[in-house]
Design a protein around this nucleic acid. Structure first.
Lengths: 233, 233
DNA sequence: GGAATAGTGTCTCTGAGACACTATCTA
DNA sequence: TAGATAGTGTCTCAGAGACACTATTCC
């Protein structure tokens, strides 16, 4: 069944590290494999590129996300491509890895069947407790590392939140990804000084004093700051 | 000859944006294609992955570099992977793009035959004057853009220089890539304050006052600064 | 000595870190 | 009114930008 068949053209797959924040934790979407090799093992969401269906690698990523959680990712970004003869017993295999940032509430795992095959796994450090197929654990770890460093100078965490949010919620998203507290004043100065956000005029009345609700002025382009946040001296 | 043959597995190629500094200009290695499509057109250096020869995508990149300039790249870094049905008339094609930073003097195009097929092209802005095959012009532009922004917070330009160099030479490499002057004092403070360089003890006696010669303490790991340089306020 | 390049001193400015203070809500 | 969270004032500090000054070489 899994006899090494070398001298084949490389296989082309796309896998996605789909991240969300649930229960104040960073979580990644994983799915049970239904085919050999690693049948029944958890893995990142992905598939072989189907040139009949997918017009691009990004479409493969979005297709597999829709197949597992029913929605496209609002933010999808290519992480890197792994390709070698070791990662798949069947021969040279490439996987282009994307990461997707998703607001948890936008996802509803529909049938019970899907719920058994697809789930969110909590990330601790760089990994999850489930054993992943192929080199997916290593890929996940590298991808989390990349995102952690990127968060220090970008606005990536907004894509883990709904379209409108409070500054505290946004700060918490940063803190959960970085696994580190940020100074509230520094955070306000940075976010409000960059002219990225506008007040909706609404207030969020959850805790005590209501918080101003903001939304991105330009949701399509992540902002790059020229200095890092959260590094201390 | 180039009849579209769809319903094939995607083809897997690797292309490299090999950069160097010659004549105070950023230059990219290009090569004349010998096959259809785009036969005789200039293109980035690259090839289909040959699973018989290459154990990984990176090996494909290094193999094609050796084939064209006789040496491996000391710094090779993955940029991104393009994969879609539009870029190649033959069907779904992926190309994993690397960029290589090379010290010009380390390259010697051997035969006259190779010289006719491989050359360095000067980059102006984001492009070169030669027309490139496939989507290579667009890839080149994006890659230069990525490198330009990365230079603002890394030590990438050292890989365009020989193993030992003066601070002025390094600063010039930065300025050529960024196409922008940097304050000499800011540059010295940054480079000497980060504890990345050590004096070899030698002095370079080219112009007037001899300059101290430095080398990287750790040539294998690029350094990331927490603030950008060359952005003015 | 003059020209040119190497290298330093030092002031200003931006923005992060630290932390105390005020403001506004609910119970 | 107390407690909690939202939001601000302001000092310090690191490091970039600006620019003048000194140092060392060759002619």
């Amino acid at each position: 069944m899994t006899t090494p068949l070398r001298n084949q053209p490389p296989s082309v797959t796309v896998d996605t590290v789909a991240l969300t924040i649930k229960n104040h934790q960073l979580q990644v979407l994983i799915t049970k494999r239904k085919d050999e090799p690693f049948c029944e093992r958890w893995s990142l969401v992905g598939d072989l590129v189907d040139a009949q269906i997918d017009k691009s690698l990004e479409e493969t990523a979005q297709r597999t996300l829709v197949e597992s959680i029913g929605v496209k990712a609002p933010h999808l970004e290519q992480y890197q491509t792994i390709g070698n003869t070791k990662r798949d017993p069947r021969g040279f295999s490439t996987s282009t890895i994307y990461f997707a940032l998703i607001h948890a509430e936008s996802v509803h795992l529909k049938s019970e069947k899907i719920k058994a095959e697809v789930k969110w796994a909590s990330i601790h450090g760089n990994q999850i407790k489930e054993t992943l197929a192929f080199d997916h654990a290593e890929i996940l770890a590298g991808c989390i590392e990349r995102i952690r460093s990127k968060v220090m100078y970008t606005t990536l965490p907004v894509y883990l939140l709904p379209q409108a949010f409070t500054l505290s919620e946004l700060q918490q998203a940063y803190e959960i990804i970085m696994d580190k507290k940020i100074e509230r004043k520094s955070f306000h100065r940075r976010m409000l000084g960059a002219n990225l956000l506008q007040k909706t005029g609404e207030k969020k009345h959850s805790g005590r004093r209501p918080a101003a609700i903001y939304e991105l002025i330009d949701r399509d382009n992540a902002h790059y700051f020229s200095r890092n946040i959260g590094q201390s001296f």
